[in-house]
Each structure stands twice: as structure tokens, then as C-alpha cells.
Computed example of a mutant assay.
Amino acid sequence: MPEGLPLDHDHPLNGTMAAYAQQIVICTGQRDWRSRIEDDGKDQHWGELVRGLKNLMGRGGPYADPFNNVMVTNSSLPPTSTGPLSPGAASAFLFPSFKYFPSIPVGVTKFAKTNADLSTFVRAFLLPTQLSPMMETLPEPRHSELLRKPELASEFPDAVDIQYSPVILICGHGGRDMRCGVMAPILEEQFRRVLESKGISTPVGTGSGNFDSPDRAHIGLISHIGGHKYAGNVIVYIPKRMKYGDSPVPHPLAGKGIWYGRIEPKHVEGVVEETILGGRVLSDHFRGGIDYDGSILRL
């Protein structure tokens, strides 16, 4: 580890994951970012998406809600380069909704009522379906503005439901803290090696025909998620229809996201065997988790 940046091997990990409602994982095709991700990608659509989301949902934004914590995370996963909206759009995954959006418009226009823009995406997918009791006292017009509008999902017909392919995200934000920056590429390579040995492919691109299949996994480095001192930090998202080994039995962790800390290369085989394939949580590394309905998981 870098000098002066020790790892914490003593503090209990369970409960160190901050609660969140959803995580949007933006496909940048880039393997590291500036400390503040909104300061990066100045000439890239993915950078516009980061800044647009923070402007819309951050403090002072029209959809700001302190009880609806949507994590905006950059990833090394590559964006889809084709599609009708690609000239002004970016790609992203959304968890625990288990969706992939190849083309999210990054602009906000005054014609949003007739043309899908970024605010349409926010209202369709990122707002809560029910407000916190602390927000229920808001005036009715404001109350309605902060609730999700599921009918707007039809404005994004190219959205892909991820049903079979697990997604492994490894914090590798060296621009923020070199502990994850050093550890993540090693873990990424080890995950690819172990998964490939189990017959699960880990291609880098998102455009191949088997984008979502039982024999494919998506692996990406991601920006800061908290807890650099617990590096390596790994999130494993298990889709709802992933099976338990070769049997028709549903995967015990289907629809869940499991956060691990203190993952070293020697632990990767165990994460693959026990969690991804076996459906068992490694309690010694467990930081927290999230279920498909957004409920937070603790041991």
C-alpha cells in the first residue's frame, strides 16, 4: 500500500456501507477519474451526465430529496457507441433495478414535456415511489413532483433488463485515494481469471450479442463508494433470474447487491465460489447490502 495510507484491519465491517436507494453506474470507458467526478469528463457525454444528475438531484436541485440517496458512480465499463440518441447521450447501469441504459440523454430542455431529456430519465427511474414521512408535509404540488412517474419509462425503449449476468464492481478511484487505485486492477484481473476458469466470460465491451446471459459477467472499476481504508472494496450484484449453480433453483442472493471490504487477490476465488456461484455471504468481509426493493441488508 502507498506510504502513509494504511489499511484498517481491525474495525468491524458490517454496517460500514452507507444506506442508499439506488446506484447509477455510468459507463465512461475510463479507468480513473479526478477526485470529484463532476470535475472530470468536461468534453464527454458521460461527464455531462454526472453533472446533470448532480444538478437535478443534488442540494438545491429540482428533485433534491435528502431521503432518496441515489449514488452517482463512474465506471470503467465502456458506453454503447451506437443508437439514435448517442450523439447527445451516455450509457449507464442502474441497481438494484438491474437495468442497462445504452442511451440516456444528457441535456435538459424546456421541451421536456414532449421530448425525453435527462429530467425525464430522473422522473422515470430515479425518484422514489413513496416519499419519506419527513417529506409528506410538503405542499401537494411539490409532493407530486418528487414521486417517480413509471409511465415515463416507455420513453426509454432501449433499456435492457439484466436478468442473468452478475455485475462485479471494484472501487479503483486512484484519483481519490491510492489504496483502491493500487488494489483494484489486481483484483479485476483476478476476477476475470477465476470467472473464465469457471466458464463465465468477462468481455470488456457492452455491445456483444450475449450482453445478458448466464455465461457472462460484467466487471468494472468504479469511483469512490466510501471506505478506502477497507480496500479492496467490491460490490457484487446478482440478477433476479440468476440460477443456483446448474439447478433450476433460484439463486439465494438473486436481486441483491452485496458489498465486501478487505478483499485481497487470495479472497477472489472465495467470492466467486461462495457468493457469485454459491449464494453465500462472506461474513468476514460483509459491509452491507441492498435488496431488489431497496431495503438495506445487514448481518
Rank of each mutant, 00 (worst) to 15 (best):
R31A: 13
T275Q: 04
P105V: 11
I290T: 13
S208T: 13
G107N: 14
K99R: 10
N115C: 12
D246V: 08
V204M: 13
P2R: 05
F121L: 06
F95S: 02
E151L: 10
S201V: 13
R176S: 14
H173D: 12
I200A: 09
Y100M: 01
V281N: 01
K99F: 03
V70M: 12
V271K: 07
T16S: 14
V182T: 10
L53S: 06
S132M: 09
P139D: 03
M183E: 12
D117E: 06
S97H: 13
G227R: 08
G199H: 09
V272D: 01
W259A: 11
L146E: 01
F67H: 15
N69C: 10
I235Y: 10
R280C: 00
F156I: 05
L195Q: 02
G172D: 12
Q190H: 02
P250A: 07
T275V: 08
M178V: 09
E151N: 09
G278L: 04
M1Q: 05
Q190F: 00
E145Y: 03
P265C: 02
H285E: 05
H285S: 08
T202V: 14
H45Q: 15
F101E: 02
V72S: 04
V25D: 02
M242K: 07
F67T: 15
F67R: 12
S103T: 14
